[in-house]
Structure formats: structure tokens, C-alpha cells
Write a protein that binds this DNA or RNA. Sequence first.
DNA 1: CTAATGACGTAGA
DNA 2: ATCTACGCCATTA
Length: 103
Amino acid sequence: MTAYDRIYEIVRQIPPGRVATYGQVAELAGYGGQARLVGYALYRVTEALAVPWHRVVNARGEVSQSPHRYGSDLYQYQLLEQEGVEFDARGRLCLKQYRWSGE
DNA sequence: CTAATGACGTAGA
DNA sequence: ATCTACGCCATTA
């Protein structure tokens, strides 16, 4: 059991059609103020872990980019759109509307 | 044990 | 509202 597994547990609790910010996940996982750890943890997520990593966005409500993820950042947008999340022209979503309250 | 690495958030301008 | 600079810690080789 690593600290990242703790983070994955939190992310797995995010319901479909909802999103959470890195800082929010960090806080729920007991790592308040360490939003970066969440980002670092998600970087190492694999399909086998069954973690809905696409439901985690930054505080601005936009998808963070990473060169080594499965597909491209576009893939994350597609997954979210499939769940009914709408993005504006800037590629951002309304956190007020989609932000997960923490179950 | 040390060094390298990596999806963010906040404050100030 | 946008842009820049800085802090920060677990995991892996």
C-alpha cells in the first residue's frame, strides 16, 4: 500500500459525469495542499489500476496535458464528453456544475 | 543511502 | 481576467 494507492482510492470514488480537482483529491486522500502528488500519482496510473483518471482536472477546470499518457489529452476530453461533461471554446468546463463534492 | 522525476495550486503583478 | 515564479514530496533506479 503506497501513498499513491490512497489517491487512486479517492479518484475511484468520483461518480461518472463529475470531476474533481487535484487539490480536492489530495485533501480527501489526506494530503491537503499537495496537489502535485496527485498529478504525479496519476502519471503512473495504468489501465490495470481501473482508475477514472480522466475525471481529475486542474483548478481551472481544464485538462492537464501530459506527453506520456495513453493517447493524447484529447482522449480525456472525449471520455468526459461521453459522460455528459461539456467544455467551452477554451477547453474548460464549469467546476461549479461538475465539481464532485466528495460523495 | 542519494539522485532524478513528475497530470498542480497559490500569490503577486 | 491572464502570466510568472515558487513551493513541495512520494516513488523508482
